[in-house]
Amino acid sequence: MKSINLTINGKKISKEVEDYTLLSTFIRENLNLTGTHIGCDTSQCGACVVHVDGKSMKSCALLAADVNGAKVTTIEGLADNGKLHPMQEAFKKHHGLQCGYCTPGMVMSAVDLLKNKKNPSDKEIREWLEGNICRCTGYQNIVAAVKDAASKM
């Protein structure tokens, strides 16, 4: 067991975790933040993407103990006091989601893209989202949403 201190969605927490606990498991089971999803067991699908110190990361590929001291933001922490983040608004406006399962990871990943690149091209958006699999949307409306969000952020 290890004792870890984290800031999750702006709130400081201290917890004991097993050495082998994945960050995704920790978020879902210890913190009950079930917006972070598990879609595979090989770190391919991207449904579990969260921000660790502002960078998008697959939380299934990190140990909770390894992010001790970090600031972690999950999909639940993206809206500001109930006001949707421009990326969330854009996904809604452009029908960038259907079943909603890949959506949290997709949104968290797209938010990070715009931190790195203010006005990405379609190609850059598609290449960035290569690590997030969506089976419903065919990606077209996701790309439209990210472009629209870029123009508003």
Binding site: L33, T34, G35, T36, H37, I38, T74, I75, E76, L78, A79, L84, Q88, F91, K92, K93, H95, L97, G100, Y101, T103, P104, V107
Partner: peptide, 17 residues
Amino acid sequence: ERKEDKKFLTGKGRYTA
């Protein structure tokens, strides 16, 4: 625009797992 979107976009969807 979809009525169901807000819950999914804010991590409030409730799937079986």
